[in-house]
Amino acid sequence: MKFLKLLGLFFFALILVIGEISFPFLPEGVSLVFIFLLLGLIYNGQKPYYQREKLRFYIIAFAFMGGLFLDIFSLFPPGVFILSLLITVYLIDKIFLPQFNFNSFLSIFIFSLFFNLIYRGLILFFVFLTQLSGFLDFPVVINKFYLLITLQAIFLNSALVCLFFALVFWAKKTKKK
């Protein structure tokens, strides 16, 4: 059963990455893998502490698979996306989740905003590191336009996390009735 679930996650991560790269109507900067990762973490964070262990394994596996596929289709040397996703998941799970309650949409939005920023910062850091170590031939260029696009992407991703969360919340509520 565990294997089947992992296989399902494998294909889900693959579909999300293909959608992210090849779907022409997706706005620039939307990261589907990271959005679904945040949703999983928020869902896990709403459970009591002792019940989180089981889903945690699948979240880490999903982060690894998503990172792997993003790395395969990316320009950067392998490892940039895997490490950025895994470190973000670790930070959220070990440091943030034990001290935070998701009791409003605003808290979810701020949570998404903050960790989107961390995720993008980590990608930039690892790309910079690969450039310094000679694995990447091109320099990282940070200018006001890049910052503007990144900011826009962070807000868009956070809004999408809230939207998906609202949809799940609404579906659950309708089901109960």
Partner: peptide
């Protein structure tokens, strides 16, 4: 072209 992405100030087409 089968894909495109921009990340960490890089833009590329696949």
């Amino acid at each position: 072209i089968i894909g495109q992405k921009s990340e960490a100030s890089f833009n590329w087409f696949l």
